[in-house]
C-alpha cells in the first residue's frame, strides 16, 4: 500500500515547508546574529539607562513575538473552527511552546532590565504582569492539548479555549493596568521602545525583530511538520492495532 496521506493539504504543507524551511531558518540566524552583535557591541549607551538599554534587543522582539504568537494561534483556531483544516489546528499547537518561550524571554529580560532601576528582582509593573498572565494562558493551552487523547476533540477544545482565553487576556491587560495605576505607586520607568527612537538604536532593533519573526516562522513550520507526522503516525498505529 502506497504511503497515502489522508488529506492533500498536509502533504502540500510538508512539501512546501521542506523547500522554504532552510531559507527561513538561515535568514533568521543571519538576522539574529547581525542584530544582536550590532546591538550589543556597536551601539552607544543610553544617557539615562546606561548599558542596560542593550537588553532592548532581546526584550522588545521577544515581547512582540509573545503577543503575535498568540494572535497567530487565535487565527489558526478560528480557521480550524470554520474550515476544519487539520494543518491549521496543528499549527496552533506547534506555535504555543514557541510563544511561551518568547513570553519567558520577555519576562526574564524585563525583570533583569528593571532590577538595576527598581532595585528589586521583580516588580508588578502592568506590562510585566500582563506577560506573566499571558504565560499562564500559554501553559494552560499546552496542557489541554496534552491531556486530550482524541485529536479532533483536542483541536476543538483548545481552539475554543484560545478564543475565550484571548478575550480574558485582553480583559486582564486592562484590569492589570487599573490594578497597578490605581494604587498611586511611583511612576514605573517605561521599558517602551518609544524612549529610544534614535536611529542608532532603532536599526539594530529592527534587525533583531526581523530575526525573531523569521525564527518564529521557521520554528512553527518545523514543529507543524512534526505535528502532522505525529498525527499521521497515530492514525497508522491505530490502523495497525486493528489489524
Amino acid at each position: 500500500m502506497a504511503s497515502l496521506w489522508e488529506y492533500a493539504n498536509p502533504r502540500k504543507f510538508i512539501a512546501t515547508s521542506d523547500l522554504v524551511l532552510p531559507w527561513v531558518g538561515g535568514l533568521a540566524l543571519v538576522c539574529l546574529v547581525v542584530g544582536l552583535v550590532w546591538g550589543f557591541f556597536f551601539t552607544p549607551e543610553d544617557y539615562r539607562q546606561g548599558a542596560s538599554v542593550k537588553i532592548i534587543y532581546l526584550h522588545v522582539p521577544a515581547a512582540l513575538m509573545a503577543i503575535n504568537a498568540w494572535l497567530m494561534m487565535l487565527v489558526a483556531s478560528l480557521v480550524w473552527i470554520v474550515r476544519r483544516h487539520h494543518v491549521s489546528a496543528l499549527a496552533a499547537r506547534a506555535a504555543a511552546p514557541v510563544g511561551a518561550v518568547m513570553t519567558l524571554i520577555a519576562l526574564v529580560t524585563g525583570a533583569l532590565w528593571g532590577q538595576p532601576i527598581w532595585g528589586t528582582w521583580w516588580v508588578w509593573d502592568p506590562r510585566l504582569t500582563s506577560f506573566l498572565i499571558l504565560l499562564l494562558f500559554y501553559l494552560g493551552y499546552i496542557a489541554l492539548w496534552a491531556a486530550i487523547e482524541n485529536d479532533d476533540t483536542a483541536a476543538d477544545l483548545t481552539s475554543v479555549l484560545c478564543l475565550v482565553g484571548s478575550v480574558f487576556a485582553l480583559l486582564s491587560r486592562y484590569a492589570v493596568l487599573f490594578w497597578n495605576q490605581g494604587l498611586h505607586q511611583g511612576a514605573s520607568l517605561s521599558l517602551d521602545k518609544e524612549e529610544n527612537v534614535a536611529d542608532v538604536f532603532y536599526l539594530p532593533l529592527l534587525v533583531c525583530i526581523a530575526g525573531f519573526v523569521l525564527l518564529f516562522v521557521a520554528l512553527v513550520l518545523l514543529r507543524t511538520q512534526t505535528e502532522i507526522r505525529a498525527r499521521r503516525m497515530r492514525v497508522l498505529l491505530a490502523r495497525e492495532r486493528m489489524g
Binding site: 499562564l136 494552560g140 496542557a143 489541554l144 491531556a147 486530550i148 475565550v164 480574558f168
Partner: peptide, 22 residues
C-alpha cells in the same frame, strides 16, 4: 473543557485561574 479528562482537577485549576484574574 475538562469533563472528559480523568483526574482533571489540576488541569481545571490551571485553565480557570488565569480566567479568574480580572
Amino acid at each position: 473543557l475538562t469533563v472528559g479528562v480523568k483526574r482533571g482537577g489540576l488541569l481545571l485549576s490551571l485553565l480557570v485561574l488565569p480566567l479568574y484574574v480580572p
